[in-house]
Nucleic acid binder design. Structure first.
Length: 602
RNA sequence: GGUCCUAUAGCUCAGUUGGAUAGAGCAACGGUUUUCUAAACCGUAGGCCCUUGGUUCGAGUCCAAGUGGGACUACCA
């Protein structure tokens, strides 16, 4: 039997578990399922590599913890050649592996660019929807979190061997777009991105803000005439005009549709630039202007199946009170669709197009309720894809002043933020003055790598479902647990490796020692396949981020204490060079999953 | 009213299916550079893991109740 390297490295845990299970049979005449045996990494305070905790097996062994652990330890040591020794403290059985195991692992994997990735495709098809912007305003910090999450999770799922389709559902129709359109028609004087020099999405966003100003002014005028706030909000001329514009759009009015298309195209051109700079991509775009009709058809289907019901005013509802939720509107009295109508349609369309058994929606936690309802509806309609719907919910990004409000102009604009980050990276890099010999192009590239690396890492290291605080003044650092810290580790390694001539390296295991600092790095590298698997299972880029930070920290410690190229024992030197190559590969690989680039120098 | 998220060091966050004395980074204080990149490394200090009860050999982790913070839910998306 020939095993590929990454199958082989997972085998040591498997081997130990198998042997432990046999030990139970042999020593205590007890059956213990291999799958149920849990091994953990030995705590740094104790000697050993892997630990088996025996407390919960005392019923099977019918002996005290120490005896149980000792008997199992003896058995395993005899039967697993990689086990060099073991020790028992209370109910903790700690196994130490021999150094050759670690040397072999290093030798076999140090140059494998795909180390840690699933060797075989799973045939599981997964759709990941993310970004999903409205086309009435530019992207902001919240969208950045969304985009980075969606892209990173897609990469992680691919690394787990799944077939991933990334899609972007563009919300290109609705009242919000009509607001921008109306303001542009009234106040724009034919302004275009070309005439103003403004990026298309920013131009359209400007008129969204203009609309809001006008609307607010009208409301306060009406209120001063004695109307209540609610009445004023409904009767303000601009909102009524915007609604009329929406009706004209739905009726296919030529001029309205022309302006709508024109302004949306401006926005798309702007988004493309932002997406490109951010480094995210999509395999497929869906547009709600195309999918909302399909949603209406499914609502009819639900009516005929008696899953939905119609009220006297003609509106269509589903009753979810038995599921602990409320009644939910699916179609307005006038027959027009609401948000969830379109999502029902899009879900169906996605499944028809790609047949994915899992469909992940990267959408903020403000829509937790919405997706719960969506999944319930699909289930009640008997849709086969209902169980595969998964809302990857993430917390809002908040500012020190509170929540971002695009209408009030308290948003952190995506383009501005990226530019600021890149600029800060530039200033810091110049101040440190280590980039002699790089040309203008390479420098610009480096600033982007570092600036965006800092931003992306900052947003991705936090568990998705947690809300996060973003303080523009002090949030993003270049020291400590940051993207640039890890990039710096990579650059330092590369600097060493530029002085290494050998294409391939070999070590004679008889003539080397394994220093504790070397071993710590190797152990972390060894865990990478399991980390990728776990990140995929949890759909959490934060798992990768925490991992790669640990790796960088551990490597820096090693680097600081031990010479690499100046080591005189050639075998030991080669071991350390391998460790450098392996670590650099691993940082690049892990950051690749996060959508972050690594520099050769910085 | 209903559904859900959240609470760990001054701040920002980790903490795997319950395991050994709860960890990082920042900020503070002290130290390290004639030696492979100091965006680094080492050390000191900093904790009623929101409260109470339960489950058990063992709970930051699981369960229940409560408190603080937040989101959603009533023809917006």
């Amino acid at each position: 039997m020939h095993l590929s390297p990454s199958e082989e490295i997972n085998m040591i845990e498997q081997k130990l578990k198998q042997s432990i299970s046999l030990a139970f049979q042999n020593c205590f005449n007890a059956e213990v399922d291999i799958e149920k045996i849990a091994l953990e990494k030995t705590s740094n305070d104790y000697e050993g590599d892997f630990t088996f905790v025996v407390f919960s097996y005392l019923k099977q062994s019918k002996k005290n913890p120490e005896q149980t652990a000792n008997e199992i330890g003896n058995f395993v040591k005899q039967h697993v050649s990689e086990v060099a020794s073991f020790n028992v403290i209370k109910g903790f059985l700690n196994f130490s592996l021999n150094n050759n195991f670690w040397f072999k692992f290093l030798q076999q994997n140090y140059s494998d660019q795909k180390f840690g990735f699933a060797k075989n495709q799973t045939n599981q098809k997964i759709m990941v929807e993310y970004s999903s912007p409205n086309t009435n305003k530019p992207l902001h910090l919240g969208h950045i979190r969304n985009n980075l999450l969606g892209f990173a999770v897609s990469n992680i799922l691919k690394a787990n061997g799944h077939q991933v389709t990334m899609c972007n559902l563009v919300n290109d129709r609705g009242i919000h777009i009509c607001k921008s359109m109306l303001a542009w028609i009234k106040l724009g004087n034919g302004e275009t991105p070309q005439s103003s020099g403004l990026k298309g999405d920013h131009l359209v966003g400007k008129y969204y803000v203009e609309f809001d100003k006008l609307y607010k002014k009208e409301i306060s005028e009406l209120e001063s005439q004695g109307l209540s706030k609610e009445e004023a909000e409904k009767k303000a001329p601009s909102i009524i005009e915007a609604q009329q514009l929406l009706q004209k759009w739905e009726a296919g009015d030529e001029e309205t549709v022309r302006i709508w298309k024109m302004m949306n195209d401006w926005v798309y051109a702007g988004f493309d630039i932002t997406y490109k700079k951010l480094g995210v991509e999509f395999d497929k775009y869906y547009y709600e202007s195309n999918t909302y009709i399909l949603g209406k058809e499914i609502v009819q289907e639900g009516l005929s199946k008696n899953v939905f019901f119609k009220k006297d005013d003609g509106s269509v509802w589903i009753d979810l009170t038995d599921d602990g939720l409320d009644q939910k509107l699916l179609l307005r009295g006038d027959g027009t669709s609401v948000y969830i109508t379109q999502d029902i349609g899009t879900a169906e369309l996605k499944y028809k197009d790609f047949g994915c058994e899992r469909s992940i929606y990267v959408v903020g936690n403000e829509q937790d309720y919405h997706f719960k309802v969506l999944q319930l509806i699909c289930k009640k309609l008997g849709k086969s894809y209902a169980d595969g719907i998964y809302h990857l919910s993430y917390g809002m990004v908040e500012l020190p002043q509170g929540k971002m409000k695009s209408r009030e102009g308290t948003v952190v604009d995506a383009d501005d933020l990226m530019d600021e980050m890149i600029n800060t990276a530039k200033e810091t890099t110049i101040a440190l003055g280590k980039t002699e010999g790089l040309d203008e192009n390479e420098l610009q590239n480096l600033y982007e790598t570092i600036g965006l690396g800092a931003l992306k890492y900052f947003l991705l290291k936090v568990e998705p479902k947690r809300k996060m605080m973003f303080n523009p003044e002090e949030s993003i650092d270049f020291q400590g647990n940051t993207g640039p810290f890890i990039q710096y580790t990579h650059a330092r390694i590369k600097s060493i490796l530029r002085n290494v001539d050998e294409e391939t390296l070999s070590i004679d295991m008889k003539n080397i020692e394994l220093h504790i600092l070397e071993k710590e790095v190797i152990e972390i590298l060894h865990a990478y396949p399991a980390v990728i698997a776990n990140a995929g299972k949890e759909m959490s880029p934060g798992v990768i981020a925490n991992y790669v930070f640990d790796l960088a920290k551990s490597f820096n410690h090693f680097y600081h204490e031990l010479s690499i190229l100046k080591e005189e024992n050639i075998n030991q030197r080669n071991l350390r060079v391998m460790l450098c190559m392996f670590t650099a590969n691993n940082i690049k690989s892990a950051f690749g999953l996060l959508g972050i680039r690594v520099p050769e120098r910085m």
